[in-house]
Every structure is written in C-alpha cells, then in structure tokens.
Design a protein around this nucleic acid. Sequence first.
DNA 1: CCGCTGTTAATGTGATCACACATGTGTGAT
DNA 2: ATCACACATGTGTGATCACATTAACAGCGG
Lengths: 220, 220
Amino acid sequence: MDTHTSQDAFSPNTASTRLHRALRVRMCEGDFSPGDVISIRRVAAEYGTSAMPAREAIRWLVTEGALVFSDSRKIIVPELSRERFHEVLFARKSLETQVSRQAFTHITTDDIDELRRIDTEIDEAIEQSDLLGYMRGNYRFHFHIYRRSHSRVLLPIVESLWLQYGPSMRYICTRWGASTIADDYHREVTQALSRGDIEAFCHAIAADIEQGMQLLHQVE
Amino acid sequence: MDTHTSQDAFSPNTASTRLHRALRVRMCEGDFSPGDVISIRRVAAEYGTSAMPAREAIRWLVTEGALVFSDSRKIIVPELSRERFHEVLFARKSLETQVSRQAFTHITTDDIDELRRIDTEIDEAIEQSDLLGYMRGNYRFHFHIYRRSHSRVLLPIVESLWLQYGPSMRYICTRWGASTIADDYHREVTQALSRGDIEAFCHAIAADIEQGMQLLHQVE
DNA sequence: CCGCTGTTAATGTGATCACACATGTGTGAT
DNA sequence: ATCACACATGTGTGATCACATTAACAGCGG
C-alpha cells in the first residue's frame, strides 16, 4: 500500500545505497537535530565520495519524509510538532510490541548477551552524560531485537518511525538533559528474555516506549 | 507513519519534479506495461532534458515502489502477482469510496459537466478500441472526483495504488480486449451526483472498482 | 549606533563525460 | 552447421563542471 509494503526493493550495492543506509542509521541514532541543514557536498566530503551518491541518498531520504525542503530549496531535518511526536510514539508502542512478539522466538542466548553488553554501554554513556552515545545505544538495543522478527513489512515501517523520531528526541533530550531518560526498561527486557517470559518481555518494551510518552508530558 | 502521511512535501518546481509527475501520471494512465524497461537516457531524450532530471525522477519512482530494479540493475515496471493485484483492488475499493465520500460535498455542477465530458471521451475511446484512451479517461474521471476530497493523506495513498495498478491493468486489458471493461459505472456515478444522492454515488464508485475485481476472476 | 548595500561563500540543479557491466550480435574457427 | 569469442551497444553509476539563487557578512553612509 505504501513504499514499505511494496515488493522487496532489490537494492544494488552502490555508494548511493550505502550512503543512504548510513544516513538513515545516523538519523535514527539522533545524530541530527530538527532544523539542521543537510548539504549534499558536505555529506559527500564526510564520506569521501563525490556529490552524486550524497545527492541520491539525500533525495531518497526526502521522498521518505525523513528530510524536507526548506523554503529556499535547502534540505533540512524536519521538526516534529508535539502532536505529531505523540502520534509517532503511539504508533511505535503498537508496532514495536508487535514486532517484538514476532522476534521473541528467534532470540538466542547470544542475543541476550549482546543486549546486556549494549545496555552496559548505555549505562556508561548516561554516566558520562554522553547523549549521542545513549541514543546510539538505545537504537541498537531496540533494533537488535526487532531485526530478529525477520519482518519485511513491519520492520521498515518501524524504521521510518525512528527516522522521524530520532532528531526530535535528541532535541528534547538536549534541552532537558539525559537524566530524564535514565530510567529505561532495558533491564526488565533482558530479564524477561532470560526467563523466557514473552508477556513480561513485550510489556517491558511497551513500558520503555511509554516512558518516552511520559517524558513528553513532563516537558510540556 | 509512511512517506505519504509525512508533512506536505514542498516540491520545488524543477525539471526533476515535473518529470516525476509526468511519469507518475503516465503510469496511472497505463502507458507502461509490466516488464517494460525504463531507461534514464531514453526518458531524458523523450522530454528533451539531460539525464539528470530523468535520473532523479526514476529513482524517485523506485523508492515509491512504482518501479523496481531488475536482476542486472536495469529499471523495469514491476509485475503484480494476481494475489497482489487483488489486494490492490481491495484497498482501492475501501479507500476510494472513502475519498469519494469526502469529496462529495465539494463537487459542483461544473464538476459533473466535466465528468460527463470525460465519460463521452471514454465512450469514444471504447468505440475505437483505443485502450490507452480509455485508461487515460478512466484515470481522469476517477481523480477528478478524488481531488475534490482535498485529502492530503488518502489521496497520495490512492495515487500510489494506481501507480501499481496501472501497468498490470493495461496488461490485462491488452490481453483480453477493452470490451471486457466496457460496462463501467460512470453513468451511475454522474447520475447519483446529479440527484445529490451520496449513498448511490459511493455505491457506484465501489461497483466500478468491484467490476475490475470480477474481471480478474473472469481472467483466471 | 543603526540600516542599507555590495560582495562573497555556499547551496541545489542541470549537463556532460568516463567507467564498469550486461546483453546481444556478428564473425570466425572447428 | 554449430559453437565460441570478440566487438558493439545500451545500461546505471560516479565524477566534475557551470549556473542561478540565496543566505550571510563585512563595509559604508546615514
């Protein structure tokens, strides 16, 4: 029905697609803030390529809604209205618990170990007030789980949600400090996985996202 | 939640966007068949531009799922499986009746006149076995209605459905003759509009799409 | 000190070229 | 006659350049 549910897009391994994926991850991890200007040449220079791949990657993100044209054809990271941010979080709660449920049976003990490792990295980042480190860890924690769902339909949709969510989340955290998001539910997630308790697991995921919604109310 | 519901994409009036829109319409009107190879240089030559705008327009359509990469990086019009085609028609029935309902109050007598005019063009096309003329008329008939809905959310989704639907519809019609689709419900649509009967109007729209589903069963 | 203005830097867009690869075709050897 | 190899063609990709537009900023006049 939309670009995500369309047949699996065979993506050739080109510089453009690599750059696109890289920028996608960076946006989810909160490397950018709303209003940031994304320049073709600057991105190209950052990744050591010519302007062409950067151009295509950026235009791709524009068609995905992850970036938008400003008034004067500059390309910027869009700002999420409070209402829209809430919508995204609501959709996240619904879809990501569903994805987690699908992923549950595929999660191995190795995965759990990896999740714990990521979680300790997150704790270190919080301790050092390293906001970007926290957001990067948070992204990797969640998507290490979600990728186990093997869903070619829901996963891209969830990714597109994070694409919109990342920059605004970073903005909020920089304004209000990472302390507000220190109490996540990652430990509950890993503990539920260790016990093999799927309901507690999904509940912890939902709680982790819900915590973001409470943060939103706390801010306004 | 997806690219369509993202904030209104401000599209600068560039050659790329013009080309993109043009190709979009042509796909909805059935100018292309599944499996057709869409070449950057050929499109550029057709529209008298350089390769760059064609390149961006085509890549745009690829990200929309309207075009796909073939095995060897050639860009082709995708083929819709029977199952998928049925899914699209089912979604069309649901969404387009909804869009029509929203459009109803905004349709003026001038619009009805225009719809009748398009319908006579369609009849002429059918009489001359002009398949492309029929499909072009059919597209314009439906979207003249849908555009009156002023929906920035549903309308792009419906367009993306037609984007997938167009080529396969053309393929089916060329194989089985335009005679199979001669009995549309356009007259019922305009008559219901004249009477101001919204229920009959929505019912006629649904019937028109349903007729396409019956065609599908007839074919297989 | 404020406001206007001309300049400068940076941006996206479009055009053109080189390259690697795939495909089809024709030609030559067997 | 058939098969294999080379060549020609067309493809997307990446690089580079020119151009118009725009934002920022320094400099000048009030």
